[in-house]
């Protein structure tokens, strides 16, 4: 019962991003910059908004019902 409750809690926490815990070796390469640093001045929200807007170009229903 307790295990089930824990599982449910874990599911609730991770459901939003459909992510599952994983255990692999730690990355040993160079650190990558965040994608919103080079051209968006570190403003993550602005970058995400830009991508979200751009994504609608793949939806022709936005221009033709």
């Amino acid at each position: 019962m307790k295990t089930l409750a824990l599982l449910l809690a874990a599911t609730a926490v991770l459901a939003a991003c459909s992510e599952r815990p994983q255990s692999v070796g730690d990355y040993r390469g160079k650190t990558d910059a965040k994608p919103y640093e080079a051209n968006f001045g570190g403003d993550k929200a602005k970058w995400e908004a830009a991508l979200r807007a751009r994504n609608q170009n793949q939806n022709e229903y936005k221009r033709a019902e």
Binding site: E37, A38, N39, L51, Q58
Partner: peptide
């Protein structure tokens, strides 16, 4: 090319 960093997909 890194399009994501340019705000493209």
């Amino acid at each position: 090319r890194n399009r994501l960093a340019e705000g493209k997909l």
